[in-house]
Design a protein around this nucleic acid. Sequence first.
DNA 1: ATGGGATGCGCAAGGTGATTGCATGGCCGC
DNA 2: GCGGCCATGCAATCACCTTGCGCATCCCAT
Lengths: 152, 152
Amino acid sequence: MIDLDDIDRAFLRELARDGTLSAGELGRRHGLSQPAAWRRIKRLEEAGILAGQRVEVDRTALGFGVTVFLGIKLATKGRVSLEDFERAVTAIPEVQVVQHVLGLFDYRLRVVARDIADFERVLRRRIMTLPGVGQVEANVLLTEEARPGPLG
Amino acid sequence: MIDLDDIDRAFLRELARDGTLSAGELGRRHGLSQPAAWRRIKRLEEAGILAGQRVEVDRTALGFGVTVFLGIKLATKGRVSLEDFERAVTAIPEVQVVQHVLGLFDYRLRVVARDIADFERVLRRRIMTLPGVGQVEANVLLTEEARPGPLG
DNA sequence: ATGGGATGCGCAAGGTGATTGCATGGCCGC
DNA sequence: GCGGCCATGCAATCACCTTGCGCATCCCAT
């Protein structure tokens, strides 16, 4: 584990907000030359701290206005392997995120749909038919806010 | 809402996996010149479908090995406004995501901590002391897999 | 004190990708 | 058939990435 100084943390914070920031711009903001800033970014990548870059796809703009979080408890009787469940759930196109968790539920899913009626179709035809699925709990997303989170 | 063809959808899919892909590379993969590919990306941005670019910060590499999802139900008696709750919860540095949801819970939080002991500190000192907090449910993240999701 | 190594910086140069102007070809409505 | 529209390719320019090199600083052992 490498240790970060204030500039490294500022880089992480600003890049997490806008991944298009150039090394030159980041350096200018913190009194570094463009190559110096670039090498810091490179070091963070090599340390595994910067783990790739993603574009954010706005599902609402694509017509998927409904996001639902599902908590799924597997039926203990079913004797279905976790691999079977995961294989089946990752094959559902509407599923964006599959989280294997510990607690009241076994899995958490993030599911997108065009509207509530579309979500009901997904729930009935896709989720409830998953192998070994037991209790299911749903929460419909109203608003979502991402925070920077701790940086060390 | 603009309509996308197969190439647009392929661009979205590949950019969501790797935001560093250049327009030239994307074009080469689908038989387009670099400017043509670049203009398609630009069009997706202007339509609001490509909503920014983020770097992914690996919290594990920073020493935050524990991620917990919290479901929070507000105490109905409390008469605490949602704004007060949200203001207080966004001030907690360990909170990465705040989701206002509909269902069994009122809010869902994504919280990171260095270890379980650190999480207990956050839970006791930060979460349980939030204004109006009622029932709290926790799920500890084991593994997480992101899927492309539907693209239209 | 002092010399050597490690670390991090700035400067400069070369390569790659982003961005724009311009011309061409297909397609649709008149 | 004909004119306008749309998307494309080509070429040129500009910004940024990437690397090599030399210098200053700090730490540590001599």
